[in-house]
Design a protein around this nucleic acid. Structure first.
Lengths: 259, 259
DNA sequence: TGCTTGCCCA
DNA sequence: TGGGCAAGCA
């Protein structure tokens, strides 16, 4: 059986919120190391990979592997009933029909309990290779969100150029062109605004802005975002969660004429 | 003639706001004890009973019985012209064609005056028996509102179970089940959050959530709500107004298959 | 007609 | 930041 308790429902609510527009149904794969989710988006262009490690829960118990097939729209409805600072406990039997969610107010005067019906989901589990990326940009997630929403006004695509000194986001469209240049720098006053770049070789790749904007729903989860690029490999956009848990989005680059 | 003055227009505005989606046209019955309203909702499932007692007005004058037949949509339009902290005076002749509403700013630099045309409304006046309820729950109106809106995501109906120790709201639906348990308790820090239960015998009844959600528009009127239940008798949901004035909603339970 | 999403106000 | 309202879609 699974029993996993989170001190604050807010993070889980935000994670599901950030995923639910990309994926309708997916499995939560639970084992003794934590709860994992991996799914292609509906149009098979992007991939979401979430890992909530066991140490992010207190307590965490999961005796054996359980796959919980969840409809994320339904889960969102249920999670709307959780206050942000509620204690959230996920429970499931070993061969479950339902996922049991318990919300307890911190004051302990209210207990809400929901049973969410589960479904069987056949899911090809894609092994995601552990890539050494040519370029890794770590920056403010709010700024990344801002850049993507600004540029989507100009074009459907953005080209991300990473060089030693900085990163350039540029878009060409019917009404004109736009580009944002960020220098690598350490902001001593507001360290969340720093732009860090790790580079083995310069990279320039083009991506669909629609997806990037969508990924940025997760910007509420972390002040920082890590953007990893290599030629001919999907972009990785990673938001850190509590502990070393994470929410990752992958997006294949546009090639040639597609741009 | 009627002349009734309220220090703050806000309460009257909120009362009409809370009723207007249930009832289109109804009589304001005025006599020397105050202004009363009683009406079935359009589908004859729920009943609204409002009483604004004479002492809630200052001054209050009403020489004889007057029935003011008002279209609540029109009244809402007129009330939109009143600032929340305006002084509101209702006036009518003994056999009136119009209800006269005067809004005065507290600073006394603006006087708005509206005449609302009245209509003849034939209204069966239902005597509402003064029931001794088997169970009475008094709780935070915000929490009651929250519970009804949370559960309507799961189902059309809610079952309210009142026992000595607490009250349980539960709903079963296609995507799963949900329930909220509140223990009877006194919250010393935030007394509006206390849950009080008076019980002569346990009660479990099922009601349409759509109506309860609607009733909860009145939650802005009072931090507390009183929920009274007895078997085979309509539920009473009461919001206290200034003084001992009140706004009450009645709703017949669902029976058997209807659930 | 009801539900969902986006915008505006408190 | 959360709730309420209005518009657009299924």
């Amino acid at each position: 059986m699974l029993e996993a308790r989170l001190g604050e429902a807010a993070e889980f609510k935000k994670v599901i919120d950030a995923i639910k527009d990309l994926v309708q149904d997916c499995n939560f794969d639970c084992n003794d190391s934590g709860v994992a989710l991996q799914a292609m988006d509906n149009s098979h262009v992007a991939l979401v990979a979430m890992l909530l490690k066991a140490e992010s829960f207190e307590p965490f118990r999961c005796d054996r592997n359980i796959a919980l097939g969840v409809n994320l729209t339904s889960l969102t409805k249920v999670l709307r009933a959780a206050q942000n600072d509620d204690i959230l406990t996920l429970k499931a039997e070993d061969a479950p029909d339902v996922l049991n969610l318990v919300f307890e107010s911190k004051a302990n005067d209210r207990i809400s309990e929901y049973d969410l019906k589960l479904m069987d989901i056949d899911q090809e589990h894609l092994g995601i290779p552990d890539t050494e990326y040519a370029a890794t940009v770590t920056m403010s997630s709010a700024e990344f969100k801002r850049i993507t929403t600004d540029l989507i006004a100009m074009s459907e695509s953005v080209t991300i150029d990473v060089s030693k000194d900085g990163v350039k986001f540029s878009a060409q469209g019917d009404i004109g062109n736009g580009s944002i240049n960020l220098r690598q720098h350490t902001d001593l006053e507001k360290s969340t605004n720093s732009v860090e770049i790790e580079l083995s070789e310069p990279v320039a790749l083009t991506f669909s802005l629609k997806y990037l904007v969508n990924f940025c729903k997760a910007s509420a989860l972390s002040t920082r975002v890590k953007i990893c690029l290599s030629n001919e490999v999907p972009l990785l956009v990673e938001f850190g969660l509590s502990g070393t848990s994470y929410l990752r989005f992958y997006l294949a680059p546009k090639i040639g004429d597609e741009e």
